Amino acid sequence: IQLFSRPDFLGDHFSFEDDQAALPASFRPQSCRVHGGSWILFDETNFEGDQHILSEGEFPTLTAMGCLASTVLGSLQK
């Protein structure tokens, strides 16, 4: 999965292949690309809070990911 700090796959980005119990504190994903398989994104660290399940594809905004525009993602799980 690739996470981007701005909508439309712009800004800083991080790529992950494994579960992340905590995303970098200063990084707030605003768009993402899922390459193969599914990922669960969580509103809180340690895989807690609301879950957003994404299958392979491109998600140019938080709302395209099924999140509110104000959502701050905290962790993710493959």
Rank of each mutant, 00 (worst) to 15 (best):
S5D: 12
S26C: 11
N46P: 01
L54Q: 05
L68W: 09
T63E: 15
A64H: 12
G66A: 05
S5I: 01
V34F: 02
L76N: 00
D19H: 06
D43G: 13
E58H: 07
P24N: 03
A21T: 10
E44A: 12
F47M: 03
A21S: 12
T45N: 11
R28A: 11
H13I: 10
T63W: 07
E58S: 12
H35G: 08
M65W: 08
V34I: 12
G36T: 08
D12E: 15
F4R: 03
I40A: 08
E17V: 13
F16P: 05
S38R: 11
R28E: 09
L68N: 15
F59W: 09
V72K: 15
Q2R: 07
T63P: 11
E58Y: 07
P60V: 01
A64W: 01
G57F: 04
L3F: 15
Q30R: 10
P29D: 06
Q2M: 09
D50H: 15
L73A: 09
D12I: 11
E48T: 12
A64E: 11
L10K: 14
F9Y: 11
E56H: 09
R33T: 06
K78R: 15
E56C: 10
H35A: 11
D8G: 12
H35L: 14
G57Y: 00
A69K: 12
G49F: 00
A64Y: 00
F27E: 03
F27I: 06
D8V: 02
G11D: 06
A22Q: 14
I53M: 13
F14G: 04
L10Q: 14
F9E: 01
F27D: 05
L23M: 10
H52A: 03
V72C: 14
G49P: 01
L62R: 08
H52T: 11
S5T: 09
S70V: 07
G36E: 09
T63F: 09
C32F: 02
T45D: 11
F27P: 01
A25F: 10
A21W: 08
H35I: 15
E48Q: 15
A21K: 11
A69S: 14
Q2D: 14
D50F: 08
R33Q: 08
F9T: 01
S55H: 13
S38F: 08
F4V: 03
F42A: 02
G49S: 02
A22M: 13
A22P: 01
F16R: 02
V34C: 03
C67D: 03
P7N: 08
I40C: 08
L41S: 03
G36V: 07
C32T: 04
G66F: 05
E56W: 05
R33S: 04
E58M: 04
R6T: 00
F9N: 02
P7F: 04
F14W: 13
R28C: 10
Q51K: 13
E17Y: 15
L54V: 15
H52G: 06
T63A: 11
F47L: 05
G49E: 02
T45M: 14
A22L: 10
A69V: 09
R28H: 10
F42G: 02
E48I: 08
Q51N: 10
H52I: 15
K78D: 05
V72L: 09
Q30S: 06
C32R: 04
G49D: 05
G57I: 03
F16W: 05
G36L: 08
S75A: 03
S38V: 13
R33I: 13
G49Y: 00
S26L: 11
G57W: 00
E56P: 12
T61H: 08
I1N: 06
E58R: 07
G66V: 03
D50E: 15
L41E: 00
A64D: 13
C32A: 14
A69Q: 15
C32V: 10
L54G: 05
F4G: 02
H52W: 15
G49M: 02
S38E: 15
A64K: 10
F42I: 04
F9V: 03
R6S: 11
L10S: 13
S31G: 05
E48N: 14
R28Y: 11
Q2L: 05
S70N: 14
F27V: 01
S38T: 15
E58P: 01
E48L: 11
F47W: 10
Q30H: 09
I40H: 02
F59L: 03
D12K: 09
E56Y: 07
Q77Y: 01
T63L: 11
L62V: 08
G37H: 05
F16N: 06
R6Y: 08
T63V: 13
G36C: 10
N46S: 07
E44K: 15
D18K: 10
W39H: 03
Q30W: 05
A64I: 03
D12S: 10
D43Y: 06
F9Q: 04
G37C: 09
L10V: 10
L62D: 05
C32P: 02
A69C: 10
V72N: 15
L73F: 14
C32Y: 05
Q30C: 07
F27Q: 02
W39G: 04
I53Q: 12
T61I: 04
E44N: 13
E48R: 14
P60Y: 00
I1D: 03
G49N: 04
S55Y: 09
G36W: 01
Q51Y: 12
Q2E: 14
T71H: 09
V72I: 12
S26M: 11
L23I: 07
A69T: 13
L23R: 01
Q30K: 09
I40D: 03
M65V: 06
L41R: 00
S5Y: 05
S5H: 07
Q30T: 03
E48K: 14
R6D: 14
V72D: 12
I40Q: 01
T45W: 08
F14Q: 09
E48V: 09
C67L: 13
F4M: 01
L68S: 15
F47I: 02
F16T: 07
A21F: 08
T71M: 06
Q77P: 01
E44L: 11
T63I: 11
L54C: 05
Q20A: 13
L62T: 06
C32L: 02
S26E: 15
I53R: 08
F9H: 05
I40R: 05
G11S: 02
Q2W: 07
L68H: 15
D12V: 11
I53Y: 11
L68A: 14
Q20V: 14
D19R: 01
P7A: 09
I53H: 12
S15E: 15
S55C: 10
L23S: 04
G36F: 07
Q2A: 08
G11K: 07
V72Y: 12
A69I: 00
A22I: 11
A22C: 14
A25I: 11
D8Q: 10
L41N: 05
